[in-house]
């Protein structure tokens, strides 16, 4: 589809918004942008470069929650991984779902599992967890098993229970 390598197209379109870009394998590009540029970058990759949003990954790291949007360009078989960081302590970042609807569910999921706030998300409700799951517990954070909250068992099955002979 493009007349030059996709990595060059990206450099040209995003300019100095790119903080870091690399192509470790033939069909993978990893690029890093600042949190404030994420909407622009996502818009350019999704609409202008005609890609498809595979999904987004959140990873709890030392700096904050790292968020990777994975785009796939079907015609060239190229995966573009757009990385950014929602910085600690407040973990706030602009919502890509406000740009295109495909990111809506995945951002809802990240919001409830990691506690990231997506600014401008059109429908910020819970998606996966039970309604009575405590609001302040985020199971995918690295500190999860330590969070002891009154009335909430992190691993209910591990509690000693003499009646249940099926417990291994």
């Amino acid at each position: 589809m493009f007349d030059k390598p996709i990595i060059d197209v990206l450099k040209e379109k995003l300019g100095d918004r790119i903080k870091d870009i690399s192509q470790p394998r033939e069909r993978r590009i990893y690029l890093f942008v600042d949190g404030k540029d994420i909407q622009d970058a996502a818009r350019i990759i999704f609409f202008d470069m005609k890609s498809r949003l595979c999904t987004a990954t959140a990873i709890d790291t030392r700096l904050g929650v790292e968020i990777i949007y994975h785009f796939f360009i079907d015609e060239d078989g190229m995966m573009i991984n757009l990385k950014t960081v929602a910085p600690r302590p407040d973990l706030i970042i602009k919502s890509v779902a406000a740009v295109f609807v495909a990111a809506e569910w995945i951002e809802r999921e990240m919001a409830e599992l990691f506690g990231v706030t997506f600014e401008g998300h059109p429908d910020p409700r819970r998606l996966l967890l039970a309604d009575d799951f405590p609001k302040c517990i985020y199971p995918y954070r690295n500190d999860y098993p330590q969070s002891k909250i009154e009335g909430f068992e992190a691993f209910p099955i591990d509690s000693p229970d003499k009646d249940n002979t099926n417990d291994l």
Binding site: L53, C54, T55, T57, V101, A102, E104, W105, I106
Partner: peptide, 12 residues
């Protein structure tokens, strides 16, 4: 390990 099943994109 991030997993995305197809229905997650298809259901909406």
């Amino acid at each position: 390990h991030k997993i995305r099943a197809p229905t997650f994109n298809n259901l909406p």
